[in-house]
Amino acid sequence: MSQFHLKGFLTSLTMVAGLATVSAQAESQSRIVTVGGAATEIVFALGAGDQVVAVDLSSTYPAEVHELPSVGYIRNISPEGVLSMRPDLVVTTESLGPPAAKKMLKQMSVPIIWCPEPNTVEALETGLREVGAKLGESARAETIINEVKASIAETQATSENWAKRPTVVFFLAPPSASGAGRAGGKGTRSSELIHLAGGKNAVDDFENFQPMSIESLIQVNPDVIFVGVSDSHGASPQSVEAMKKLPGLAGVTAVRTGAVYGVPMDDLSFGPRLGEAVNRWHAHLAESAK
């Protein structure tokens, strides 16, 4: 009996021994941990990328972040995991979870910048300004804000002149022969992005990302279909091609006119590259708006 527990005790000790030293690296400059794709991109855009020591799984841009240790998925963050990276600053968004960990981090003495939930241009502005002020890069932040705003204003000016606003469905995962896809409803980042790009979200009878059957897709009959593509999460380019060939979808306007596009999943991060994303989506929509 006691042998059993002793064994368990020893196993857990050995499991742990090798892992506790992950963070042992000496550096003189400040150490930043970023949690959330937008937070990471903001810090990198403001030129502080070389100070970032750890990111979360949802941070996929720029490529350097793949070399950094991961503190886990943004919705399941371990406070001690973050603190073990000995950060001088944590930059994250209000999406961080679970709620208990968020509450706990807010009570800790480590300086943390809580960017607003990144789903609007305004949220991006606030995030950029706060992080910019903290890093002493306010001017650079303003420049980025102005660029993003200008770029969006430009696209919007063009779409004003369109004959109609194309209806769009965005899929996190495309419908396939084996099941329904997950489409972005009201209030999602994809919905906001479609709006900014000059389109109209064809799915407005539900909120969040929900399963959407092929039959509902035929019923909605969008002008354009976007599918989020990514190596780590989201769809693969192959699945987008496979979707076009699904029986029954041939009659849907988007499929008939070839307006089914894979778009980078990163476009939804609402980071400093928002203008780029809006432009990309806008360009696709323009084809169908004529």
């Binding site: 499991m15 992950v22 886990g72 963050i77 371990s78 001690e80 995991g81």
Partner: peptide
């Protein structure tokens, strides 16, 4: 048992959980 499991949960994949 739970103490062992939880200690493992917070350390095996550290700094993630």
């Amino acid at each position: 048992l739970l103490l062992i499991a939880d200690t493992a949960a917070r350390t095996i994949a550290a700094p993630a959980e």
